[in-house]
Amino acid sequence: MWSVQPLAIYCKIPLMASSDETSTDGPDASLRVDFCGLDFASPLVLLSGCVGFGEEYTRVKGFSNRDVGAVCLKGTTLEPRLGNPPHRVYETPAGMLNAIGLQNPGARHVVEKILPQLDFSETRFIANLSGSTVEEYAEVARIFDDSPIDAMEINISCPNVKEGGVAFGNDPDMSARVVAACRKVTDKPLITKLSPNQTDIAENARRCLEAGSDAFAVINTLMGMAIDAESREAIIGNNQGGLSGPAIKPVALLKVHQVYQVCRDHGVPIIGQGGVASAEDAIEFLIAGASAVGVGTALFYDPLLCPKINAGIENYLARHGLARVSQLTGTLRLNSPPVRQPGCGV
């Protein structure tokens, strides 16, 4: 178990905006984003695996899917999966580990039983595709193609399954093959979700772009582990899990920046994600190159966070004289460190 004493710095994370910043009548028009031709009411996207199959958070009074541009459904495979044994989640410094193992009822069940229950007038819904083989990804994509789903996210970055997932996502050849196979069976927007657990994320993005990806989600979780020192046991049932939350934000910002270099000239948008817990965080991702911003783990901290982030972004746009949130995308000012020769005073 970890000690929290040295982590007092994280207390500064602005988790809760003051309530007077909260809007009640949905996101302001300045927050609208065109994402691959889809109309997002806000750049915020609820992330796969954090909100079940779309309606779970509506249990919370005051929560509304209308506050976000889109909702990504839980990772879905061709056949139902039970997922990993417990424990599946564990809090770590400024974040958490999860190893759910893609528990889901299978693509056909999702399309036939769950999608008809979703209120598509509230937001856009995005399926999250997973599989153990290239063919399985394509079959899941085909099933969702014949459904009202608005877009599909190809999850080639799940760290919690033995086959497929990150094993594909860390290999640019395999990544491109998965994307190409899905591209063949659907004209709906395809978003490739990239893993941070790889050497050259930009190269992978380039290959997926050539294979037909319309957009990217950057990043999925980083692989990690938690150990109980007393019992010497691995705490997570699956031994290892995916790290998410504020702890991964700096990694995610850099990866978004790197993938943006590839995407910029092609007009291919990015859903930046990893540790977003405030309007400032969301704005940083937009500046790094994202067109939309994902919120996952922070929802566990504050289920009513999204309207506060919307209000914070709106406020920022007004202060900076910007009419639309899309004007922020990729506006990062990089330093150009001068090349100096070391002198005697080094």
Binding site: C50, G52, E56, L82, R88, V89, M96, F300, P303
Partner: peptide, 17 residues
């Protein structure tokens, strides 16, 4: 009892068989 993240049914983190 099981370890929980969201507490509202969103994450499937808290399951029992």
């Amino acid at each position: 009892e099981e370890f929980m993240a969201c507490g509202v049914g969103g994450c499937a983190g808290c399951v029992v068989e």
